[in-house]
Nucleic acid binder design. Structure first.
Lengths: 123, 123
DNA sequence: AATGTATTTCTACAAATGTAGAATAATAAT
DNA sequence: ATTATTATTCTACATTTGTAGAAATACATT
């Protein structure tokens, strides 16, 4: 599932809000806001792609995501890692940690995170 | 610079080959290979976007990337991190290192890489 | 009941993308 | 020279994406 920019943006908002009515979504957009019909179209397309669904409240619909941000995101990452690093996570990691991409502080943070994760797994 | 799939794929090959003639590129594609005109169109579009250029050898052209894989990739990543992790690299890192995303071995590898990087920086 | 507000559906249309045929030009091999 | 191979340019066309107007609906409020 690879969504186009505009749909991904909308999903982003939905993930953040968890559930939302049209109005809330439009409110969420920064100026200049898209026409409501534009948002409606995007929602329609996302429904077709089974990425969102809604619950009826009388005649209003409360939309919610059908795919989680985590799952969507990790698929994105896998794609990137596969394409750019020939499926080698370590190659990715070393890119990720290289000078231009992580500051010293961030690198330390990462080190901590890795430590913690390792300890956590030692259960 | 965000290239569409088909163009990105071609860039991928170009990065890998560094320089290539049409023929080499087509050879590089797996079956079913695209028509040569398709590749030509993609190259044309990539030239317009200043992503590739070529050097004439008589009448043949040897194509090469104008943007590096590293730069392109890191922009991609920044976009992803910005969109999905609200610009927090550490949030990204912790997602990245979580159970479902990295195996124990990979995590160890990452640890090593981080160590090395930290040492390297201490220069 | 009449009107304003929010929503949905349909339709539309330009731009971007994926793919490739026809025609042409240039080169290489016989 | 003639032919086969390769590359290039142009044109074309179906899909997908970005964006939204018009019309129809439903609901809320005067």
């Amino acid at each position: 599932m690879n969504l186009p920019k505009s749909e991904e943006q909308l999903m982003q908002y939905l993930w953040e809000m968890e559930r939302a009515f049209m109005k809330d979504l439009i409110d969420r957009y920064p100026e200049p806001k898209p026409a409501s019909t534009t948002v409606a179209t995007l929602l329609k397309r996302l429904q077709k792609k089974k990425a969102v669904h809604f619950e009826r409240y009388g005649s209003v619909r409360e939309y919610f995501p059908l795919i989680s941000k985590e799952v969507y995101f990790s698929k994105q990452m896998n794609g990137v890692i596969k394409n750019f690093f020939n499926n080698s996570v370590s190659q990715f990691a070393s890119f990720f940690t290289s000078e231009e991409n992580l500051s010293d502080e961030q690198l330390k943070e990462l080190q901590q995170i890795v430590e913690q994760q390792i300890n956590a797994r030692k259960k």
